[in-house]
C-alpha cells in the first residue's frame, strides 16, 4: 500500500509540474500583449517600456521562467498585474467559495442520483428507468448558465422563493470575518445565525442548478455499474449458495461502487474549473469568476496561479479517490 501511495503521489506531482510548465509557456507563446492592455494601445514607447520592465516582461522567457519557478519553490505565486496584491492571498479567498459550492452540489447530486440509479437498475425498462434515460441524455451536457438563468427567472422573479442572484449574501447582511472562507462555515463558527441563514438562502439555487447538471451522468453510471454487478457470476453464485439477501445486497452495492466513485472524482475535479459559468450567473467571487477576470485582463500571474491551484486540488481529490478505490478493490494495487 505504501508503495502504491508513493507512486500515485509521484505521478500527481509530475502532472502538476507538467501543467505548470505548459501553462507558463503556452501563455507566452500566444500573440497577446498584456502590456498594451495595461497602459493602453496609444501609449508612448517610453511608458510602454517602463510598464514592460515593471511586469518583468523585458527579460527573456527563460529568465522569466526561472524567476517564476524560484518564486514557486518559496511558495510565492507572484503579484497580480491588475490589483497588485498577492495571488496566493486572492486565491485563498476565492477557492473556498468554489469548494463550498461544488461540495454541496455534489453531496446533493450523490444523495439523489445513487438511489435513483439503484432503483432503475432493479427495474430495467420500468417507468423510472425510461424517464431517467431521457434525463441522462439531457443533463450530461447542458448550458448550465442558461439553466441557472431559467431557474432564477422561475424561482426568483416568478415565485419569489429565491434571492436575487447578487452574490453570497444579501446587501444588508454583514458577512462574518473570513476564517475558512466558506460562508456557511464561517458564519456558524462565529455564531452569526443571521449570516448563516442568508448564506444558505443564497446558496440553494446555484447548488441545485449544478446538482441538476451533474446528476445525469451519475445516475447513468450507477445504473450501468449496478446492473453489471447484478448480472455477474459472483452475485448469482452468492444467491445460489444461500447467502442471506441483505448480505448479497451489500456485496452488490460495494462492487458497484468503484466506477461511480471514479466518475464522481472526475466530475469533482472537473467542476473546480468548470463552475466558472455558474459563479458568473450568481455573482459568486469564486475561482471561476477570478479566472475569468484574470484571463480577460491578461493577468498572467493570476492565470498561472489559478491553473496551478485547480490542478493541485483536483490531483489531491484523484489521489484520495484512488486510495479509496484501492481499499475497496483489492485488485487495484496490481
Amino acid at each position: 500500500m505504501g508503495r502504491y501511495v508513493l507512486k500515485r503521489v509521484g505521478i500527481g506531482l509530475l502532472q502538476a509540474i507538467g501543467i505548470t510548465v505548459v501553462v507558463f509557456f503556452v501563455i507566452r507563446a500566444l500573440p497577446a500583449d498584456p502590456v498594451a492592455r495595461l497602459v493602453g494601445f496609444n501609449s508612448s514607447p517610453e511608458v510602454y517600456a517602463q510598464a514592460q520592465a515593471s511586469l518583468g516582461l523585458d527579460a527573456s522567457v527563460w529568465s522569466q521562467f526561472t524567476t517564476y519557478v524560484s518564486g514557486l519553490v518559496r511558495g510565492d505565486l507572484g503579484v497580480s498585474w491588475v490589483t497588485g496584491s498577492s495571488i496566493l492571498g486572492e486565491l485563498r479567498s476565492a477557492l473556498p467559495i468554489t469548494l463550498q459550492l461544488i461540495t454541496l452540489a455534489f453531496a446533493l447530486a450523490l444523495l439523489v442520483s445513487v438511489p435513483v440509479g439503484i432503483a432503475t437498475a432493479k427495474r430495467p425498462g420500468g417507468k423510472l428507468d425510461k424517464t431517467v434515460f431521457g434525463y441522462g441524455l439531457f443533463a450530461g451536457a447542458q448550458p448550465e448558465f442558461w439553466w441557472g438563468l431559467l431557474f432564477i427567472f422561475f424561482f426568483y422573479y416568478t415565485l419569489g422563493i429565491a434571492p436575487a442572484p447578487l452574490g453570497q449574501y444579501a446587501p444588508g447582511v454583514t458577512p462574518p470575518p473570513e476564517i475558512t472562507g466558506m460562508s456557511l462555515v464561517d458564519s456558524l463558527i462565529t455564531g452569526n445565525i443571521a449570516a448563516f441563514t442568508d448564506a444558505a438562502w443564497h446558496l440553494w439555487l446555484p447548488v441545485m442548478t449544478l446538482a441538476f447538471i451533474v446528476s445525469g451522468p451519475i445516475i447513468k453510471m450507477t445504473r450501468q455499474s449496478m446492473s453489471r454487478v447484478l448480472g455477474s457470476e459472483f452475485i448469482l453464485y452468492q444467491q445460489a449458495s444461500g447467502i442471506p439477501a441483505n448480505k448479497v445486497a451489500r456485496s452488490t452495492i460495494r462492487a458497484s461502487l468503484p466506477p461511480v466513485l471514479t466518475l464522481a472524482g472526475i466530475l469533482f475535479g472537473f467542476l473546480l474549473g468548470g463552475a466558472v459559468l455558474i459563479e458568473q450567473v450568481f455573482a459568486f467571487n469564486g475561482l471561476g469568476s477570478y479566472s475569468v477576470r484574470a484571463v480577460l485582463n491578461l493577468d498572467y500571474p493570476a492565470i498561472q496561479g489559478t491553473v496551478l491551484i485547480i490542478t493541485i486540488v483536483s490531483l489531491g481529490v484523484y489521489l484520495v479517490l484512488d486510495l479509496l478505490l484501492a481499499v475497496i478493490d483489492p485488485r487495484v494495487k496490481n
Binding site: 457470476e233 459472483f234 448469482l236 445460489a240 478493490d329
Partner: peptide
Amino acid sequence: RGRSIGLITQKPRQSLNPF
C-alpha cells in the same frame, strides 16, 4: 440453496466476489 442443492459453475474465478 447451497445446502440441499449445490451449484458448481462454469467460471470458478468469476463466481467468487473479487472484493
